[in-house]
């Protein structure tokens, strides 16, 4: 069975402390619950969580929805976003199955990134690393007033934003990720993933986002 890999990159820098980080945790729980009740996602979706606060770390390796447990995360340190992008490129290279004479390739991975600030490391080297691997759609979310949407456009043209960093906005974002994964896992189940990569698939291929999420 072809798997649909999903990488979720979360900013866990100091500024996320309090309501934002708690909302992210609840968001991950909602995501888990939603996808576990979706018979299409249960068949194909696999999730990995990468956090970036003080340093980029893969807190959950690529895991089947059924065994996936939302990780305990803490807000701490700076915003090494470039490091997180290099790390996800490295993990994709390692974890996503390629086509061999004996094996069908996995679907191209979906990547979701959420940040409330601006990178404290070298973003462009991370972007360059990410370009070296094949991905499906990459979505970056600028959460709250201090995130820089234009900077995120350097990672992907699929940038969304949240006006505020409160529970309502963050939970809306996670619900939308869940809906996007459900829709994609159903489509890939059906073989219609728009696998043109970053420069082909657009946000219009995902379910319409709730009012809390702005498109750019």
């Amino acid at each position: 069975m072809r798997r649909l890999p999903i990488y979720i990159l979360l900013d866990t820098s100091k500024s996320m402390e309090g309501e934002p980080i708690e909302s992210v945790k609840v968001g991950l729980e909602t995501l888990t619950t939603t996808l576990r009740s979706d018979p299409h996602a249960l068949e194909t979706a696999h999730i990995s969580i990468i956090t970036f606060g003080s340093r980029a770390r893969q807190v959950v390796p690529l895991t089947d929805i059924l065994s996936f447990q939302p990780p305990d995360i803490r807000a701490w340190g700076s915003t090494p976003m470039g490091g997180a992008l290099s790390l996800v490129a490295d993990r994709i290279r390692d974890e996503v199955r390629k086509s061999t004479p004996d094996q069908k390739a996995d679907w191209k991975p979906l990547v979701f990134l959420m940040t409330d600030g601006i990178p404290t490391d070298h973003l462009d080297s991370g972007v360059a690393e990410l370009r070296k691997v094949k991905t499906g759609m990459v979505v970056a979310c600028a959460a709250g007033p201090n995130a820089d949407k234009d900077l995120l456009m350097r990672i992907t043209e699929n940038v969304v934003s949240l006006d505020t960093l409160d529970n309502a906005s963050i939970s809306a974002f996670f619900k939308w990720i869940s809906a996007s994964i459900s829709a994609t896992s159903q489509k890939v189940d059906l073989g219609k993933q728009d696998n043109k990569g970053d420069d082909g698939a657009t946000l219009e291929d995902l379910p319409p986002p709730p009012p809390e999420i702005n498109l750019h």
């Binding site: 086509s99 069908k104 993933q193 696998n195």
Partner: peptide, 15 residues
């Protein structure tokens, strides 16, 4: 049967 290295192309050939 694997028809193509690209997953989407492979799938649409298989179906």
């Amino acid at each position: 049967k694997k028809h193509h290295d690209d997953p989407a192309t492979d799938e649409s050939l298989a179906m």
